[in-house]
Measured scan of single mutants.
Amino acid sequence: SDFTIRIGDRTLHLKNVSEEILKILEELLRRGIDFEELRKIVEELIK
Rank of each mutant, 00 (worst) to 15 (best):
G8C: 02
R10A: 14
S1W: 07
G32W: 04
E26Q: 13
D9Q: 03
I24Y: 13
S1G: 14
I46H: 10
R31I: 12
E20F: 08
G32A: 12
G32R: 03
S18C: 03
E26N: 10
H13F: 05
R30E: 12
F35E: 04
I5T: 01
E26P: 05
R30V: 12
R6H: 15
K15D: 04
E37H: 11
R10Q: 14
G8H: 02
V42E: 01
E44T: 09
F3Q: 05
T11I: 13
I46W: 08
S18P: 13
E37T: 14
N16K: 03
I24V: 14
L45N: 06
E43K: 08
L14G: 02
I33P: 11
I33C: 03
T4Q: 10
L29S: 05
L28Q: 10
E43Q: 10
I21H: 15
E20G: 10
E44L: 09
L22E: 05
L14R: 00
L38C: 02
D2Y: 00
E20W: 07
S18M: 02
L29F: 04
R31S: 08
D34I: 07
L28F: 10
D2I: 00
I21C: 04
R31L: 08
E19K: 09
K40E: 08
I33S: 09
H13E: 13
E19G: 12
L38T: 05
E37L: 11
R6F: 01
R31K: 15
E26W: 05
I7K: 01
I5L: 02
I46D: 13
K47N: 12
D9R: 01
E27G: 07
L38G: 01
K23S: 13
R39F: 12
L22D: 02
I7V: 11
L25D: 00
L12I: 15
T11G: 03
R31F: 04
K23C: 06
L25K: 00
G32I: 07
L45H: 07
D2L: 00
D2M: 00
I24H: 12
F3M: 15
T11M: 09
K23T: 14
T11E: 15
E27P: 07
T4Y: 02
E19T: 15
I7Y: 03
E37M: 10
K15M: 06
E20Q: 11
E20A: 13
E43N: 11
R30C: 04
E43F: 10
F3Y: 05
R6A: 12
R10H: 14
H13T: 08
G8W: 00
F3I: 15
F3H: 09
E44V: 10
I24C: 05
F35D: 04
S18R: 04
L25F: 04
D34P: 11
D34K: 12
L29Q: 06
G8L: 02
T11C: 03
I7T: 01
K23F: 07
N16R: 02
E44Q: 15
G8V: 01
I5Q: 01
F3N: 02
E44D: 14
I46M: 15
R6S: 12
I5Y: 00
I33N: 07
R30K: 11
V42M: 05
E20L: 07
K40W: 09
K15T: 13
R31C: 05
S1D: 10
E27W: 06
G8T: 01
I5A: 03
R6D: 07
F3S: 04
